[in-house]
Amino acid sequence: MASEATGAEEGGLVFHPMDQFIIKPLFGGGDIAWYTPTNATLWMALSILAVVALLVLGSSKRAIVPGRSQSIAELSYGFIYKMVEDICGKDGAKYFPYIMTLFMFIVVANFLALIPMSFSPTSHFAVTAVMALAVFFAVTILGFVKNGTAFLGLFWVSSAPLALRPILAIIELISYFVRPVSHSIRLAGNIMAGHAVIKVFAGFAAIAVLSPVSVLAIVAMYGLEVLVSFIQAYVFTILTCVYLKDALHPSH
């Protein structure tokens, strides 16, 4: 009995909280080339399907009095549209489809990742960094195209005393280039940490005494992760809007 218990303990306490993030080929093994369909591909494809189901099939009735799915589609549309318009102003509204694309992908991928045994693409720095860098470059190029060299006024804090301005400019410049880093790591870090913590609690469930506590902890973490999934998508989107506003109206 005792040896069995210790054996179970040893076996149960081998945690692999990060294994859920491993990218595997869907069919067979072997190396992962750039085109290989992997579990990341599968869950990204599922997120496309979910977006289509929500926004296209949900709104297919075009009802004046909306049903449930149409209400959600309209809510998400109105939520992001209002966010873009409030932060970027009326002239930011034409970038709404790009921001909506980012938001819908992140929020749907985050929620799909909450399905047990699923894979979370948004927990990978490769994914979030590409989105953050895309936002960074698009916003920077847009800033120069729209405002020319006046875009550099973003780094020249004209409301500060003259002596402080060069120092502030350096700080602003550094913070500007740190943006994509913080932008991407915030999202991937939150999703990764939450899922890893759930996995760790799940590992403790192998010990009979701790399993009720562990299950309760998983439930609590799961609830928190539902919140985090939405909030991180919201944060990513709202930061994108703020960066876009800086590009459109660089004056402080």
Partner: peptide
């Protein structure tokens, strides 16, 4: 795994963008 993820991410984002800008957003 980065080239793989980046490739499929771009495919996904472009697909979602096309669906949204062509169908979903004008309709809503």
């Amino acid at each position: 795994t980065y080239p793989n993820q980046i490739f499929w991410l771009l495919v996904t984002l472009i697909a979602i963008y096309l669906v949204l800008s062509r169908v979903a957003l004008p309709r809503i």
